[in-house]
Nucleic acid binder design. Structure first.
Length: 219
DNA sequence: CCCGTGATTTAT
DNA sequence: TAAATCACGGGG
């Protein structure tokens, strides 16, 4: 208690973060648009004990719901697992897969319109040493959050955060970055990863990444 | 390339 | 109830 504050945890930083949090309006759009708008923005995790972790979003994928064979909500499939996809824009959809991994998505569009953006990679910014404790002591910065399950492990995102509102929750939210809103020349658009089963939808270019960024899951 | 891993979904 | 699936990651 009453310890010296580190630079990253300063009162100034925390006050600024309040005014920069992304609002409901930001998420009220289609998944492809949101996926691009998210590049360069900050994902922030507040841990119990006051530790703040954050990263800059460098890779995203859009999942388009009803018509999208790769979406958990394909054909408006609605189950206990994907219920959060039908909630309001700005809701977190966190799911568990392969018996050991979590993935984090941001719901967009409108209520009952199950659109989402998968966050696939971050450039670690705050709390890098804490992330290394979560992920492994020898992992380089470029490997800490370079995949959808890696970033969940690094930021301690699990099923407890499924369904939370990113506009108001105290544990996880997004912040507007000063220099986000990248020009097209700095963005690469490719097919999505790991959805070979999705027929013609497997080929659609619904993945976006910051060109040349070393923190992405694959070049 | 292979395979761990177990919740979730889908088929009987 | 049983079988198949899986928006992954780590190790050859």
């Amino acid at each position: 208690m009453f310890g010296i504050l580190t630079a990253g945890d300063s009162t100034l930083t925390r006050r600024a973060s309040k005014t920069r949090r992304l609002s409901r309006r930001f998420y009220q759009t289609d998944a492809a648009s949101l996926a691009q708008k998210l590049l360069g923005q900050f994902l922030v995790r507040q841990l119990p004990g006051g530790i703040r972790l954050s990263g800059r979003i460098v890779e995203t994928e859009a999942y388009l719901g009803e018509p999208d064979q790769a979406s958990h909500a394909f054909g408006l499939r609605r189950t206990a697992r994907n219920e959060a996809m039908y909630a309001k824009p700005g809701t977190a959809y966190v799911y568990f897969t392969y018996g050991m991994h979590f993935c984090f998505n941001i719901v967009c569009g409108k209520v009952n319109e199950p659109l989402a953006v998968l966050i696939r990679a971050l450039e670690p910014i705050e709390g890098v040493e804490r992330m290394r404790e979560q992920r492994g002591p020898r992992i380089p910065d470029t490997g800490l959050c370079s995949g959808p399950a890696k970033l969940c492990q690094a930021l301690q995102i699990d099923r407890d955060l499924n369904g939370i509102d990113l506009v108001s929750d105290k544990r996880l939210w997004l912040e507007r970055a000063p220099n986000a809103g990248l020009d097209d020349e700095h963005i690469l658009n490719t097919p999505r990863i790991g959805i070979d089963y999705a027929g013609s939808w497997a080929k659609k270019p619904l993945r976006w990444l910051i060109r040349g960024n070393p923190h992405v899951s694959r070049g």
